[in-house]
Design a binder for these strands. Structure first.
Length: 314
DNA sequence: ACCTCATTTCCATACCGAGT
DNA sequence: ACTCGGTATGGAAATGAGGT
């Protein structure tokens, strides 16, 4: 425990410069007295750490002192910061641990690697959750060359010219866009970019061709990938499109049904009675369910079967 | 000179393992 | 079971540096 804390202190000091003992104590959940003892231990171990008294004082490392405990290459460190964007950590209650781990990695990275790792965390997002409407079709993987070009434009801060095929259209359109970054949403890559100053989402596997231009990117002030993504994600999930479906599902399987379909059940119909055996149900009544506007999309076909109009609606 | 804030010193408590 | 030594931790007062 103590050795872990000593390492945390060391890396915090590397990252932040001078830090008051009270702040270290708060962050590491011990008393300031314990922090001072840890500083003594670090000092005894040969770490050039010193305390500065008075107003604006604090604990600091001698200028120029750094540890490099990772041995990571530039690409390896960038890969770590892509992983770090996953919300799964918060779902597991590991958000704090992740933040602490990243702080350690960032602090321990060789100085030349740090800007790239930091940039990666701002230009790449991984959102493992499926769209509310449950997009399942295709799951097409973009040709590597497409993603490479998009990737290059994002990190080189250049405008991008793309030929893009919209959903349901056969012809391609050409756009010049200002990329914020790439987002992996449920395994599908998207380019988040401004087109004529407005944020737009482009599925990477619908980008037929892409060219990185010489023109520098024109991003809106103060807008980061996460902000633009948040706006676009909400827009997509508000869209009232999709397929209206009425399905028969065993009552005991409703929970699994909504989980698999990725949709929220709008209404459970009264017991379908005579149709109860339609799927060989032995455990009770059938239930009709469909999703009304504004979320009418369900894609449960195949997995559970669809009863068509056999459900009874009162 | 006085005040504020950060560090240091002193002392007490808790816990653990080894020895009796 | 008890004692002892070592380690870790926290509270409170003292000390010191810098700002006004």
């Amino acid at each position: 425990m103590k050795s872990d804390r000593l390492l945390s202190i060391l890396l915090l000091l590397q990252t932040r410069g001078r830090v008051p003992a009270a702040e270290l104590a708060e962050r590491l959940e011990v008393s300031a007295r314990t922090i001072y003892r840890d500083i003594d231990s670090l000092s005894a171990a040969g770490v050039p750490v010193y305390a500065e008294r008075g107003r604006h004082g604090g604990i600091a490392l001698l200028p120029g002192f750094r540890t490099d405990v990772t041995g990571l290459t530039a690409d390896e460190s960038r890969a770590l910061f892509v992983l770090a964007a996953q919300s799964a950590h918060s779902a597991l209650g590991l958000e704090k641990a992740l933040s602490s781990a990243l702080r350690k990695v960032m602090a321990a990275l060789p100085a030349p690697h740090r800007p790239a790792a930091e940039l990666t965390s701002r230009r790449i997002l991984v959102d493992p959750d499926r769209w509310l409407a449950g997009t399942r079709r295709g799951d097409a993987v973009p040709r590597p060359v497409d993603l490479d070009v998009l990737h290059t434009a994002v990190f080189a801060d250049r405008r991008l010219r793309i030929r893009y095929r919209h959903s349901g259209e056969s012809e391609q359109r050409t756009y010049t866009v200002d990329p914020y970054g790439l987002v992996a949403k449920a395994g599908t890559w998207y380019l988040v970019a401004d087109r004529r100053g407005r944020p737009q989402l482009f599925r990477a596997d619908r980008v037929a061709a892409a060219t990185v231009t010489d023109a520098p990117v024109r991003r809106r002030d103060g807008v980061e990938l996460a902000d633009a993504w948040d706006v676009l994600r909400r827009e997509v999930e508000r869209r009232p499109e999709g397929v209206r479906v009425r399905a028969r599902v065993r009552r005991g399987r409703l929970d699994m049904f909504t989980r698999i379909s990725g949709a929220s059940l709008a209404r459970v119909l009264p017991d379908a009675g005579a149709d109860a055996d339609a799927h060989g149900a032995g455990d009770g009544a059938g239930a009709g369910a469909w999703a009304p506007d504004p979320y009418p999309a369900l894609y449960p076909f195949g997995a559970l079967g669809v009863g068509g109009d056999r459900s009874v609606q009162r």
